[in-house]
Amino acid sequence: MGDRFFHKLWQGTAPLVLWATHFFFCYLYAASGCRRETWAVLLGVTLAALALAGWLVRQGWQGGKEPRTLLGMAQLGGAVLALVALAWSAMPLFVFGACA
C-alpha cells in the first residue's frame, strides 16, 4: 500500500518538480557568469524541459482508462501549470538573447 501511495504522489507532483528543478538550475547556472555558452546551455535545458512538460500534459490529457479522478485532474492541471510556468520563466531567455 505504501508503494502505491508514493507512486500516485509522484504522478501528481512530477510536473511541478520539473518546473522547480528547471527554475533552480537556470538561476544557479546564470549566476555562475554571463558567457555566450551559458545562453546555449540554458536554451537547451529550457527546450528539453518544455518538451517534457508537453509530454506530461499529453499524458495527463490521455489520462487513463477510468473516468476523470482527482489524481488525473491533478496530473493534467499540474502539467499545464508547469508548461505555462516554464514558458513564462523562459521569456527573458528568448527576448534578451545571449549575454554581450
Rank of each mutant, 00 (worst) to 15 (best):
M73W: 10
G12T: 08
L71I: 07
G77L: 12
W55P: 00
K65N: 10
R35W: 14
V84I: 15
G44A: 03
A20S: 13
E37N: 05
L76S: 05
G60Y: 11
Q11M: 11
V17Q: 10
A85H: 01
T13D: 07
V45T: 06
F5M: 05
D3K: 08
A85G: 04
L81I: 12
L28N: 02
L83S: 14
G77P: 03
L86Q: 00
G78N: 04
Q62R: 14
E66V: 06
M73I: 06
G97M: 06
W19S: 00
S32F: 15
W61M: 00
A90H: 02
A100L: 13
Q75F: 02
V84L: 15
H7F: 09
V41K: 04
L81S: 13
C99K: 03
D3W: 14
F23G: 00
L86G: 01
F5D: 09
F5T: 07
S32R: 12
C34W: 15
F23D: 13
L71G: 01
L86K: 03
R68C: 02
M91G: 00
R58G: 15
M73S: 13
A90C: 01
G72M: 03
V80S: 00
L50Y: 02
L28K: 06
L50D: 05
F24H: 05
W39F: 11
F94Q: 04
V45P: 03
H22Q: 10
L52F: 09
G97Y: 14
L42G: 02
W39H: 14
L9K: 06
F94G: 00
G60D: 11
W88R: 06
V80C: 13
L93V: 05
A30Y: 09
L56K: 06
T13W: 11
W55S: 02
F5P: 01
E66F: 03
P92R: 09
L18C: 08
H22N: 05
F23S: 07
A87W: 14
A100Q: 13
T21I: 02
L56P: 05
M73L: 12
F5E: 10
L43Y: 15
W39Y: 13
A87K: 02
S32G: 14
A74W: 11
W39M: 04
L71R: 08
A90P: 07
T46C: 04
F23E: 07
G44W: 07
A53K: 01
T21A: 15
A74N: 09
T38L: 02
P92G: 04
L71D: 01
K8T: 05
A53Y: 10
G33E: 10
A74F: 07
G60S: 04
P67H: 03
L76Q: 06
L56G: 06
A87C: 09
A87L: 12
F24L: 15
L86A: 00
Q75K: 15
Q11S: 08
W19G: 00
G77R: 06
A51C: 08
W39S: 04
A14M: 08
T21G: 13
A51L: 14
C34Y: 13
Q11H: 08
V57D: 04
R35Q: 11
E37G: 00
L71T: 05
A90R: 04
M91A: 13
R35M: 10
L50T: 06
